[in-house]
Amino acid sequence: MRYFARKFGFFVATLWAVVTLNFLIPRLQPGDPAEIMVKKLAGKDAQLDPAQVRAMRAMLGAPDGSLVQQYGTYLGELVRGNFGLSYSYYPFKVTEVIGQAFWWTVILVTVTQALSFVVGVVLGAYAAWRRNSRFDSVVTLGSTFLGTLQPFWIALLLLYVFGYSLGWFPTSGGYEESTPGLNFPFVQEAVSHSFLPALALLIVTPIGWILGMRNTMIMNLGEDYIRLAKAKGLPDRVVALKYAARNALLPSVTGFALALGGVLGGAILVEQAFDYPGLGRLMGEAVENKDYPLLQTLMLLTTVGVLVANLVADLLYGVLDPRARRAQS
């Protein structure tokens, strides 16, 4: 139990660090980002809600009040879920804007991440088991090469080939005519719009898993418990799965959350290319329009997302590896 408590403690501490970092970044900037935002919004509409101005100042910094006071206000607004107004989507609140885009990205990233994990681990394990075979060299060399490609570029190429030249898939957006919701036309459109972005991510993301799994598995295959399993005359399938792969999988589980950060980065770029209505495109728009409340909130949200995934992976690791539960620090 100590293992789980420690991991949860780390989660809380990291969460605090990230929230604080998010507080500090705008305040470390030259000038007054909050003032700029308020002025820009005032240009759009004279009737700004004072409560919203307060929230904005809490997020981005206020000229009056010590840092400690500001920090208190900031945490207060955070707990209430008050992140201010979005400049690009005025008069909507940041939370509403993000709420619209949230599931697009979450589903895209979760599905691709899960798929690449499974594909990567299976390919990597099989390549290691059949080490030095043709399959192994194709997988290893192929991964090394594909790993050098930029996700944005892949996205543009896919767009060019399958979107414009062949016309098999829609080239931008998330859906066409249908009303968003759980109805068949919408789901169908969403899936066809998500196909190319997912494919662009799926070309790159399994590579880390493939190479990582292959390496740990090859290392594990030299271990005595594998030799003993072979000496025991167990079928290859059992040795490969229950002994080798089961152990080699462990580092991949801890790497899961860290890789998620990378996938999110890739998703931001891919969404740009496809004009996909997710958080990545939103981030691009926030950057373009200097929409600091939106940008800051997106940054916080993605980090917390990775953090939660990290916690889940750590807890899962504790279940999978009996040694971790007892190990110290």
């Binding site: 981030m283 940054m299 980090t303």
Partner: peptide, 15 residues
Amino acid sequence: LVIPALPLIITLVAY
């Protein structure tokens, strides 16, 4: 290590 790099870089540069 857990803070995703690209979103952080984007945020820092955007200012």
